[in-house]
Design a protein around this nucleic acid. Sequence first.
DNA 1: GCGATAATCAATAATTACATTGAATCGTTG
DNA 2: CAACGATTCAATGTAATTATTGATTATCGC
Lengths: 219, 219
Amino acid sequence: MSSTSPKLALFEQFALVAKTLGHPQRLELIEQLGQGPRHVDLLADKLGLPIANVSQHLQAMRRAGLVAAERQGKYVIYRLASPDVLAAVQAIQQVAEANLAEVGRVVRGYFYQRDCLEPISRDELQSRLRDGTVTVLDVRPADEYALGHVPGALNVPLGELEARLSALDPAQEVIAYCRGPYCVMSFEAVARLRQMGFSARRLQDGMPEWAAAGQPVES
Amino acid sequence: MSSTSPKLALFEQFALVAKTLGHPQRLELIEQLGQGPRHVDLLADKLGLPIANVSQHLQAMRRAGLVAAERQGKYVIYRLASPDVLAAVQAIQQVAEANLAEVGRVVRGYFYQRDCLEPISRDELQSRLRDGTVTVLDVRPADEYALGHVPGALNVPLGELEARLSALDPAQEVIAYCRGPYCVMSFEAVARLRQMGFSARRLQDGMPEWAAAGQPVES
DNA sequence: GCGATAATCAATAATTACATTGAATCGTTG
DNA sequence: CAACGATTCAATGTAATTATTGATTATCGC
């Protein structure tokens, strides 16, 4: 009566995708890969995990159709299999934020407490970039900046923020961004900048989403 | 330097959501709940699983913020925690369909082979319903029809299709729908109707998506 | 209150997922 | 072609998931 065999086969494949997403460090890998293709060593370094472990996670994700790999010289470069992957992760985050009490608590308590202002949208930033009325700050580590950033953005990693304040024009609004909606770095940067008397705001989401939205990337 | 503690806590919650989605029969439960709230017994019956098993799956999903439960008399009624849940499942299905060879094969081979025509969109069906120029067929089992269906739709379960052909006006186009994009029933119905000389098409997706899109539901 | 029905809980055994270790490939570079 | 670096593979023990069973709680109708 109902469809049994092909349907189960499909659902098992869907489940494989979801199950493979169901691991915090694999989500972190996706966050990294969302910023651009990376090789295994670098990813292992970023996550602070043994290389073999990361390699196995990446292979599991490859089997689930989440990432793709390509050999380049002695490196194996991994990248997201398609932009759909980021969309799926975002959809899951949305469910968690809406329905899991703890997530809501952390997000509202730890994140938004430090930033009562609305973030600036990607489109708005684009147009203000053309006008030249903003300073854009990429507060990620230097290597992530090097692999792709918003055109014209200055790379000022969080740790160097205070030391490099003098490079900023106090008259211009500062827009900070980092890895994505659940990365605290841009929140932290905005909070500190405001304390210093700057007019500062966050960019909506972060780098992976900027690239995924088809905005230009400079490297 | 980077955010460690609150971020890991968040990612673990996200992973919990994804991991909980990573089970074929839990996806089936979500498909059922996407059609409307249900109690445990009925769900167990639909899936052909022991009640205790379904109950445990439902509780796991409740812990992950996917479903919500409410006691009504001696029944416990479960429902999707939010429409986001369907969106997340769809995003995962999209990843699977795009990047997993086997899924693409099954979908194209088993499903689309039987339906070379484009499905009709929800909005188009709405407007043609107002004009009265279509017959809408709900080919799901009677009990699922009873719990909510497209206004004006006739309930003709697949098994009874041939027996009830006479009730259809051969001059009108027939639109069939069932549980969703990966349910074969409407494909099957359309194929048989065409063989009988009817002009038949599928509705895009199915009931859960119809309801999730805010379209009217009759019960 | 007493059965009857709906659902959950508790305990188990089987399976699967995971991190870790050290060895084995693969490609480059001297 | 040998040595090296990047990655994968294979094997291990541990932990987490899962289905199943039977017992237990909650609610209704009488």
